[in-house]
Amino acid sequence: MYEPPFTRDRAANERLAARACEACGWVSFPEAREVCKRCGTHGEWSDTQLAERGTVQSYVVQQRLPEGFETPLPLAIVDVPQQSGGEPARVYGLFTETDPDDLEVGLEAEAVFRRIFDVDGLPVHSFKFTLPRGESR
């Protein structure tokens, strides 16, 4: 079965493409709306690119999930800055290749490109987060 929602979100999922409200600076991600969720302005938006690293605001470690997810699976709310500066975007992200015991609020997390799952054989790709393993990476 063809799955349009994942097609619509490809720019956000695969390239961390976002939009910033020109009236208040709020960053919309992964949605691309006409009305700003924060200031309510129906105004202009500029395209922006998120950085590949952000800061963990809170996290959980999921132990009970449907088939197809590996457990334990850490998940966090990460504030990810724009490459050009300005406000960060607030992003949900699954973690990969991360020891749950290493997670803390305030840590830096790095977005990495991963195949998330298949829909009837068609792969859906997006970012996951991981804890950076040093600057040489």
Partner: peptide, 19 residues
């Protein structure tokens, strides 16, 4: 379904409140 959970970017009910 993995897709259903992923639409919430992997967030289940206990995860939402656990955060």
């Amino acid at each position: 379904a993995l897709e259903q959970v992923w639409r919430g970017r992997g967030v289940t009910m206990p995860a939402f409140f656990g955060l």
